[in-house]
Amino acid sequence: MTRWEYFTAPILVHMSQQILNNFGADGWELVQVVPGPNPESLVGYFKRPVPPAGQDQR
């Protein structure tokens, strides 16, 4: 069975592509985006598989 770890992060609207590409390069998959505390930001929910014991993830 796959084990997952989760992460939430602010996503600035004017830099969303760069932010999402950076998280994707680290293995995070975007699951959901919700409105942030102001009109210029969103909150992204991400997940990625937990590596088996003994393996380091980037």
Rank of each mutant, 00 (worst) to 15 (best):
R48W: 10
F7M: 14
Q17N: 08
G44D: 07
W4I: 13
Q18N: 07
V34G: 00
G27M: 07
A53E: 12
L12G: 01
N21T: 04
Y6H: 15
V33P: 04
P49E: 13
Q32V: 07
N21I: 02
P49A: 13
R3Y: 08
L12M: 06
V31G: 11
M1S: 14
F46I: 14
L12A: 03
P51S: 04
K47G: 13
A53I: 11
F7H: 13
E40S: 05
D56E: 10
Q17G: 01
G36L: 06
L42C: 01
Y6N: 11
N22L: 09
M15G: 00
N38Y: 13
I19N: 05
G36Y: 10
E5P: 12
E29S: 09
Y6E: 15
Q17L: 06
L20M: 02
T8K: 12
L12S: 02
M1R: 13
G54W: 04
E29K: 02
R58T: 14
Q55H: 07
G36F: 08
D56M: 09
M1C: 15
A9P: 06
N21C: 06
T2A: 15
P35H: 05
E40Q: 08
G44Y: 10
D56T: 11
R48V: 12
G24W: 00
P10C: 03
L12Q: 07
V33D: 00
L20V: 00
I19C: 05
Q55N: 07
V33H: 03
D26T: 09
P51E: 03
V31Y: 09
P35T: 05
W28H: 11
S41A: 09
G54Y: 02
P52C: 01
R58L: 12
E29Q: 14
T2L: 10
P51W: 04
F7P: 03
T2F: 02
N22A: 12
Q17P: 01
F46D: 11
G27R: 03
Q55M: 14
P52I: 09
P51Y: 01
Q18P: 00
W28I: 14
N22D: 07
I11S: 03
W28G: 13
F7A: 06
Q57G: 05
A25K: 06
Y6W: 15
A9R: 14
V43I: 15
V43P: 00
F23S: 04
I11M: 03
G24R: 00
L30K: 03
W28K: 10
M1H: 13
R3L: 15
W4Q: 11
A53C: 00
H14Q: 13
L30D: 08
D26F: 12
G27L: 10
D26R: 12
M15L: 06
I11F: 04
L30G: 07
E5G: 05
P39G: 00
R3H: 14
L30N: 06
P39R: 06
G36K: 07
R48K: 12
G44V: 10
G54N: 01
Q57N: 04
Q55S: 11
P49R: 05
K47E: 15
G27W: 04
